[in-house]
């Protein structure tokens, strides 16, 4: 029974990190109908930036808490900046191009960023310091839940709540919803669509960076390629929940996390990635609208 709970907890932890990345996919897709292939790389860059600044700040003699906060903050800032720049370079000029063009451009961007980090940094796995401190109060329960899990679940929940608030109740949230519904119409009523799109990329990238920092510190190592697999998985989560839907992305991510956790726990860990890909293929074939999405009527 304890093993079962362990798997559930492991699945939820995994799932909540997928959720952070999946939100970026879903938001971007909702607004520009583009699978932002480079999103996984943004997450990877977030993790790298955090690693780099952690080392630098530690060497400069900052205390532990300051290092964690500053490094995470810088990771979020840099990832957002990358997300913003990627959109400006690779997607904005293609706003009115046929659907496949921005997708190909996104794939190119993803490969470019991977190799940029590979060349500028290293192809080896780098050990990532455990940024999450061990809490005293959790000690007695360590066999069930550790502080990393708590921090991850907590951060993810807070991020979700903030995001929901932002989209539901703020001006920019309203503009985002309007743009998602009908870009041209939104433009006509005075929404600055380019700005909305930029902000969407920035928010999505910031969340991905958060996910990057958390997972890297949880897993303990990173390399330039982590974004690819994580990206595909997060995309699976987004599709699973119904792409374009924010609660859907979270739900899909949790389902995916749990599935993986149980599959590796009870079946075999060799095929961990096969489960995720298999789930993706099945969901797209049998229910492309996802769990929470509605099938869109074809416009003719």
């Amino acid at each position: 029974m304890e093993y079962f709970f362990e798997l559930i907890l492991g699945g939820l932890t995994r799932g909540s990190i997928y959720a952070l990345i999946a939100l970026g996919y879903t938001m971007v897709y909702g607004i520009v109908e583009l699978i932002n292939f480079a999103h996984g790389e943004i997450y990877m860059i977030g993790a790298f930036t955090a690693l780099i600044f952690t080392s630098v700040l530690t060497l400069l003699g900052f205390n532990e808490i300051a290092v964690i906060v500053l490094a995470s903050l810088l990771a979020v800032i840099y990832s957002s900046a990358y997300g913003y720049t990627v959109e400006k370079i690779a997607y904005k000029p293609l706003r009115n191009a046929p659907r496949l063009s921005p997708l190909i451009s996104a794939i190119g961007m993803s490969i470019f960023l991977q190799n940029y980090v590979l060349l500028a940094q290293t192809s080896d796995f780098l050990p990532f310091p455990n940024l999450i401190p061990e809490f005293e109060f959790i000690k007695p329960y360590r066999h069930i839940i550790g502080s990393p899990e708590i921090i991850i679940l907590l951060t993810t929940s807070i991020a979700m709540v903030l995001l929901t608030f932002l989209i539901k109740f703020t001006r920019i949230g309203k503009a985002m919803r309007a743009t998602a519904q009908d870009r041209n119409m939104a433009m006509l009523v005075g929404v600055n669509v380019n700005r909305v799109i930029s902000i969407t990329f920035i928010i999505g990238s910031a969340l991905a960076a958060l996910g990057g920092v958390l997972i890297a510190s949880h897993v303990g190592q990173i390399n330039f390629y982590i974004g690819f697999i994580a990206g595909i998985k997060a995309f699976t989560a987004a599709v699973l929940g119904g792409i374009g839907s924010i609660p859907g992305a979270v739900l899909g991510a949790l389902v995916l996390g749990l599935t993986e956790s149980f599959a590796t726990g009870y079946v075999s860990s060799d095929y961990e990635d096969v489960f995720a890909f298999g789930l993706l293929v099945l969901i797209l074939i049998f229910r492309p609208a996802g769990i929470l999405g509605r099938a869109a009527a074809q416009k003719v």
Binding site: L94, I104, G108
Partner: peptide, 20 residues
Amino acid sequence: SDYRMLLFGAIMVIMMVFRP
């Protein structure tokens, strides 16, 4: 040769943007 994949990625973006 070192920049091979970097080049491939860049080509995809550049071609799509300027000469689809």
